Structures are given as C-alpha cells and as structure tokens.
Simulated assay, not measured.
Amino acid sequence: MTPSDNDIRAVRAHAQLLGAPATDVVSVTRSVTAIQAQSSPAARLAIRARSRGLTAPDVDVSRAVSRTWLMRKTLHLVPTADLRWLNRLFGPRNAQAGQGRRRQLDLTDELCERALERLQDLLPGKALTRREILDGLAADGVVLDAKSQAPAHLLAYAANRGLLCRGQDDGAEPTYVLLDEWTTGDHTPDEPLAELAHRYLSAYGIATVEDFAAWSGLPLGLCRKGFDALDLVPAGGGFALSETGLSASPCPPCLLGAFDTYLLGYRDRDLLLDPAEAKRVNAGGGMIAPTVLVDGRIAGTWNAKRTAKQTKVVVEPFATLSRAAISGLESEVDDYGRFLGETAVLVI
C-alpha cells in the first residue's frame, strides 16, 4: 500500500497521540520519546494536546518525567527512567560540541572541573536554583557573571557529564538536582541507538533518516545505523516500523504549543506546513510559534491574551476555517482553559 499525503499526516498525528490521547504524563512523554522543554509552558501544552483530564500542576509535580539537555543540545522532557541511557548517548557528544562556546565564555576546562567538584558538595539532598548555585560556587572562588550565558552553559555541561539534571521548578525558577539522587535504577537498552531509532519512528510514524538526524542532532551515518537495525517498510518516501498501520482516521482540530514535537520531528515540513506560510510559524531565531492543526496540517497560529476576567485565545488562520474546524477549536479552547485553570474563549 502506498499511503497518500492525507494518510501520512493522519498516521503521524495518530503516532503523536493527537487523535488518541493518553491519561497520564509519563505515557504521553514516552509515546513521543521526548518533548522540547526550554520553555516550561510550551512543554506543558505539548502534554495537554496529547492527554485527557490532566492539568498543568499534574505535569509540574510529576517526578516520572524529567528535564535535561539531550537532542540537539537542547533541554528536553523525557521519562525519568530513560534519563541515564539517553544521557550516555547524547551527553559526551554534547559536551564535546559545546567546548568552543565554553571557551568563548571563559569556561576553561580547569574552571569547569573545579565547578563540578564544588557542585558535588553543594547539591546532595538539595534542589538549588541557578542563583543559589552561583552563590555557592562564588564562595569557593568560582565566580561567574549571572547576566552572561556562562552559567547556563556550565549547568548544561554538568548535565552532559551526568552529574545533574533539572528538578522541579521553584515557582518560576528552575532548580537543579544530582542525577544520582533524582533517578532510581539504571536500565540501559542493549542497543541504545537502535532503541532511540525505534522510539523515534514509533512517535513520528513515517519519516526519513534525514528527519531522524534533524530531530536527534546525531550524525547522519549513526542515524542510518539506527534505522538499519530495525525491521522497516518503505512508506511515503521514507520508512515506517513494520508494525505501523499506514492509514488512520484524521485527527480532530488541535491547539499546539510553541516548539511542538509534531513540527520538530521532521527536517522536511512541507507536508505539514505550506512553505508559503512557514515564516509565520518560524520567523527565525529558532522560535516555533504556537500553531493550529486541522486535518493534520498547520492551518494557522495562535496566542493567548490574558485579562483579569478571562483569557482570549486568538487564532490567526491562514485561510477561512470550516464550521467543523471552528467547533473543534472551541472545544480545544475549553480544554486549554480547564488545563490551566482559567476561563478561556476563542477569538478568530
């Protein structure tokens, strides 16, 4: 069977749980492998779109999922049970790739090692904010400019070395904890690269090796090895796992948050997003706007405007929306408000 473009979009949306939501945070996160999480509000919305009945606090308090720097050297939310093996796969490569930038920030190898030693004294039994960590380092003679990018790069380096990960937020402030204290167990797949490739295709349905490389940030040669280790079938110009159904029902209209995995999972997004509208979604600087999904295609962008009485979800469609699409988005806005504990209304 050769899937049509509509089939491919439906299969991808189904793999992303956009038509068959889960009921707990870890199930969502594991199903999509990893959720980009440099923005905590956006990560929460990625889970909302793929779940039923959860609230934002449910995401925030769950220790079954955790954040650290993985794919593309970027902060991701993953099942806590997968932190160690994913860190072993990405950490050394990320640490090496960041060496040049660390030197530009005067984070010499000697300074980084001193900082890591001090962090092992500061963090046991604690979850510290960045400010608290900087104060503790300064007391030991490791002084970093809090207004520069040096603290962020040092913490990412410490995470890549397997020392720490993000803990639960302290209000609006992220905290950092020792990885050894945060995780339990040490399961590692027999073939981590093949496991990652399998999870990627499970989450993204039909994709190419180039898509896998763009999503993971791993070299193309390694990505080919990952695909070669799997039982795949050709589909839609790419590949799918042999157990993947190559057709699915269209997903209902969805409100996707910024940096949503539905777009970030593919190098070539033309099937999902009209190239003529691409700059309205990705204006540059690595920003991916919140988007409206209709029949598996990006049909517009949206933003939230809050007042004391209500939140207006303002949708800017690329073309006129059907009555059915509007009705679906009204339901989405209701659920968005429920998830955040706000009164929300749709504005088009």
Rank of each mutant, 00 (worst) to 15 (best):
T108K: 02
L230H: 10
V142F: 02
A197K: 05
T2I: 11
P192I: 03
G167I: 11
V313H: 12
A46Y: 01
L179A: 14
A20V: 11
R67S: 04
P124G: 02
L222R: 11
D121S: 12
R72T: 10
E173C: 06
V61L: 12
V177F: 02
H76S: 00
S51P: 05
Q38M: 05
D231H: 14
D58M: 12
P41F: 00
L220R: 13
H187F: 11
I47Y: 01
Q149T: 04
T74R: 05
L340Y: 14
D82L: 03
G205D: 04
S331M: 14
L273V: 11
P41W: 00
T343N: 14
S202T: 13
T291C: 10
P92K: 01
R63C: 12
S39G: 13
Y266N: 11
G217D: 04
A43K: 01
A43T: 09
A325P: 08
A156I: 03
L154K: 03
Q168E: 13
V65E: 03
V333E: 11
T343D: 14
D140C: 13
D335H: 09
S40T: 15
F259Q: 02
P57W: 12
D211Y: 01
I206V: 14
W302H: 05
G237Y: 15
A34N: 05
L54H: 04
A156K: 15
A319H: 08
L86I: 05
A139M: 13
P250Y: 11
R63E: 14
R131Q: 15
G185R: 00
T291I: 14
G238L: 02
A34V: 09
N6T: 13
P192T: 03
S247M: 07
F227P: 08
R224P: 07
